[in-house]
């Protein structure tokens, strides 16, 4: 059974359309990453899924129920890490986790979540005195003491150091391996490639892509040339019909699906040789997810 089913979701704030006709789903054991620029509609979509924002049109079902009207019963099955969730004033870290564990009927999970999120040393400190990264780990700990069937994380690693990011991604992976559906938003494409099965790209509130991560990378090979100039790229494009553009210090061109990557590379290198151009490096590889994203949103 589909855990999260978003169908034609639109959310408007007055005259502004934050989300337009967004459709995607998350199945048990699947990790879906929602990516997009700031203001692309990620958090509005998450807020509609957790029932605190009503759709202007379309529908959201979570465990087959409407999160806006059945939120309290559905909520027992999910753990949520909101992007900007505070906590009651004056509470200590351990008390925060214990309170929410108790609300989910999982009081015995509290100490494990504190430990898993590396908060043992600060458990007796008031949450407001924590650094941004520590507050984020606290927020994750609270999500982890929630229901185990669905994990919703809105930018879970935004303020974390590298070990913290690794830990979060490991915990997400562990929860997913146990069959939980995971929906996360992020700006980090390395995270998406590491943990997500599928990526939903939002652009200006609409879905620009909804595909397995591998469909956007492995199935989209590219030729990468080092040591050439932009004008070299323009000349190659004009001569061979390629689409070289600058990516970092290289020229990169996607290869159409009906072309053989190796043959295209040989053709490009042959032309370069005839023109006395000597690329410092030449390779055929998968398009990176971030390049796929740039292409999708026209950046």
């Amino acid at each position: 059974m589909t855990v999260v089913d978003v169908d034609g979701l639109s959310v408007r704030y007055g005259d502004v359309a934050a989300v337009s006709d967004v459709t995607f789903s998350v199945d048990p054991g699947e990790t879906v990453a929602l990516v997009g620029a700031n203001g692309a509609g990620k958090t509005s979509t998450i807020n509609a899924i957790v029932g605190i924002l009503g759709p202007t049109s379309g529908s959201v079902r979570v465990f087959g129920a409407d999160p806006a009207s059945d939120r309290s019963s559905i909520a027992r099955r999910w753990g949520v890490m909101p992007q900007a969730g505070g906590l009651p004033m004056g509470l200590k870290v351990g008390e925060c986790v214990a309170l929410f564990a108790d609300l989910y009927g999982r009081a015995s999970d509290a100490s494990g979540a504190v430990r898993d999120c590396g908060l043992e040393d600060v458990a007796s400190r008031r949450w407001r005195t924590l650094s941004g990264g520590q507050q984020q780990r606290l927020s994750l700990a609270i999500a982890l003491v929630g229901g185990h069937d669905l994990l919703i994380l809105d930018e879970p690693t935004a303020a974390l150091d590298v070990p913290g990011q690794d830990r979060v991604l490991d915990l997400v992976g562990e929860r997913s391996d146990k069959g939980a559906a995971v929906l996360l938003t992020t700006h980090r494409f390395d995270e998406v490639e590491r943990v997500a099965d599928r990526v939903v790209v939002l652009h200006d509130g609409s879905v620009a892509a909804n595909a397995p991560v591998s469909d956007l990378t492995v199935k989209s090979p590219e030729i990468r040339l080092g040591g050439l100039t932009v004008s070299d790229g323009v000349r190659i494009n004009a001569a061979l019909g390629t689409s070289f553009s600058v990516s970092g210090s290289d020229l990169v061109s996607p290869i159409a699906e009906d072309h053989d990557a190796g043959e295209r590379l040989q053709a490009v290198l042959g032309w370069c040789r005839d023109q006395n151009l000597s690329p410092a490096s030449a390779s055929v590889g998968s398009r990176s997810l971030v390049d796929a994203y740039r292409e999708l949103v026209g950046e």
Binding site: S73, A75, G86, L87, M89, L103, R128
Partner: peptide, 21 residues
Amino acid sequence: GFDRSFGAIGRYAVSPVRVVD
């Protein structure tokens, strides 16, 4: 009022807590 300004309401909002609770 302080729970609102500290963002605690948003956290309860996504928990099993109902308005009546």
